Amino acid sequence: MMDVMEGLYQVALERKKTKQEGSYTCYLFEQGLDKILKKCGEECSEVIIAAKNGVSQDTANEVCDLLYHLIVMLVESGISLKEIEEILEQRRAKIGNLKQFHISDHCS
C-alpha cells in the first residue's frame, strides 16, 4: 500500500511544482490550505456516512477519496509520507501495551 501512497504523493508533489491545466490537484493547491482542509472534512464525513450505510464498496471508495485529500494536505503542509510512516511504526510498536480501564465504584 505504501508504494501506491508514495506514487500518489509524488504526483501531488509534481502538481504543486508544475501546474497542469484541468488538474483537480492543481486547483486544490491554488485554492490553498483552507480549501484542502475543507475537502478533507467533507470526505471524512462521507466515510462515516458510507460506513454507517454498510455498503463496503462505497466505504472503500470514500476512504480512497479521503486518503487522496490527506495526501494533498500533507504535500501542502510539507509533511512527508516517511514522517507519517515513522510515527505509525512507533505506534505499532506500542500494540499490546494496554492501559487499564478505570473502574468506578458505583456503590460509594
Rank of each mutant, 00 (worst) to 15 (best):
M2V: 10
D3V: 05
D3G: 07
V4F: 09
M5G: 01
M5L: 15
V11T: 10
A12F: 03
E14L: 09
K17F: 06
T18R: 12
Q20R: 15
G22T: 06
Y24E: 14
Y24N: 12
T25E: 08
C26S: 15
F29G: 04
Q31M: 14
L33C: 10
K35R: 15
K35I: 10
K38P: 03
C40Q: 09
C40P: 03
G41M: 12
C44G: 11
V47T: 06
A50M: 09
A50D: 09
A51M: 13
A51P: 00
K52H: 13
G54N: 07
G54E: 05
Q57E: 13
A60V: 07
N61S: 15
N61A: 13
V63R: 03
C64P: 00
L67W: 04
L70Y: 03
L74S: 07
E76V: 05
I79G: 00
S80H: 08
E86G: 04
E86N: 14
I87G: 00
R92A: 07
K94Y: 00
N97K: 04
N97Y: 01
K99D: 13
Q100I: 00
F101I: 11
F101H: 11
H102F: 06
H102C: 04
H102K: 10
I103R: 09
I103Q: 11
I103F: 08
D105C: 05
H106C: 05
S108V: 11
